[in-house]
Nucleic acid binder design. Structure first.
Lengths: 232, 232
DNA sequence: CGGCATCCGGGAAGATACTG
DNA sequence: CAGTATCTTCCCGGATGCCG
């Protein structure tokens, strides 16, 4: 029977510590929680979209995390108006403010000696990594808009005055458009493989201004790896 | 029998995701891991010091986290020379570079509407929070050194040219010295209670230049709270 | 005492199946 | 599509005990 359903304990294991870090971990320290936040940084998503973006998460865990994050005031469950009355999860204002946290974390981890970049990535991951690794100083005199068509998600980026704006949405009229998988876009940006080679091998497609696209992929330098400490 | 001991799994549950965030969580995403890192940010500590600084951690979990962080190249186990041949754990260079991550996280969480600051804090926590919340613009024309004697740990801070340096170590010759618990120092910095009131009530002791100490505690503004989303 | 191994109970995570 | 139910696995937390 589910009579006792009312007596929900609802007390996760908390750190008994007033430190901000400990409190942060009470909020987003559970497994998957921060990755759920990451997936929502470019706008609301549905349950299934989240599930598909997070390889390995199971439905019940995703449910729990969404409940927890909602209870913490980091996201809200919202119902879209009748035409396409699907449910979406959207970060609150404070939730969106976690982006610097997530970026800082990612930038730090990028220096890990044991980072394996051959695994799959979500579209949001690669878009977020561009915001993180963007080096405005490299864009001297550059201006343009670039579109990204990754599977069924589209994004558009604009560079001007050394700044990058990047958001989810249609890329109509962009100067150049990349089409392919998130993983292959990551290779183009970070592996050092020449963009033309990737295009020749049909790994990635670029429509529009190819010269602009080739410059674009040089704006995202990876930090130097930390030296590996005596590992096994 | 422990014959099968050789078949060490050694594979924690990893996120199958090349994103930097996921990798970061593979490194420090386990429970307590980031708090262990935090405790080491001001220098090496012994096993027992860590245990005492982290209310609620159990010895075996601490052992596991130290093993994991060492395997990840974030800290090293070091043996001090014979006079006091105790073992200490010390962050690697890359480990120390996690400070921005930890600070960003703490600053973000400080805006949480449901942060309870009445719980105990470790000495390192409060020192780190000062580095995090320090507002150099408030120190116009201020210069001085301040010591902190928190239980049996001592720290010293120097402010000049709008910058704060803060480290573990003796505070001989400091212009003013705070003596008390980390929790009460936190109250002096963040609760808004006047420093003189805390001194009158014997909660905190200040030796040396009291006027300087009173200015000092105004240099660490807390960010505004995020508005509470419809919570229970 | 410091550091670590071991055993155990509870609960969170993972996988799968099922329902509205 | 959006979850819930159930079962298994494994991690976390606490206690004990070994060993230098």
């Amino acid at each position: 029977m589910k009579l006792q359903k009312i007596t929900k304990k609802e007390k996760h294991r908390l750190y008994d510590d007033a430190c901000g870090i400990a409190h942060a971990l009470d909020l987003v320290g559970e497994r998957w929680a921060l990755l759920v936040m990451r997936e929502l940084l470019f706008g609301p998503k549905r349950f299934s979209d989240l599930r598909d973006s997070l390889p390995g998460i199971s439905a019940n865990v995703l449910t729990q995390r969404l409940e927890g994050l909602e209870a913490s005031g980091l996201l809200v469950k919202r119902k879209l108006p009748p035409p396409a009355a699907s449910q979406v999860y959207e970060l609150t204002e404070w939730g969106y403010e976690s982006e610097p946290v997530i970026r800082t974390l990612g930038k730090w981890a990028a220096r890990s000696p044991m980072h394996d970049p051959t695994r799959p990535v979500s579209s949001v991951s690669i878009m977020l990594s561009m915001r993180t690794m963007f080096d405005g100083a490299r864009t001297k005199g550059f201006a343009g808009s670039i579109g990204f068509q990754l599977e069924d998600e589209s994004f558009v980026g604009r560079i001007a005055d050394g700044r990058l704006e990047l958001e989810r949405g249609p890329h109509d009229g962009a100067d150049a458009v990349f089409t392919g998988t998130a993983r292959l876009l990551a290779a183009a940006l970070y592996s050092g493989m020449p963009l033309t080679a990737m295009i020749d091998k049909n790994m990635l497609k670029v429509d529009g201004d190819l010269a602009l696209a080739k410059k674009f992929v040089t704006f995202f330098p990876l930090p130097a790896k930390a030296q590996a400490a005596s590992n096994s």
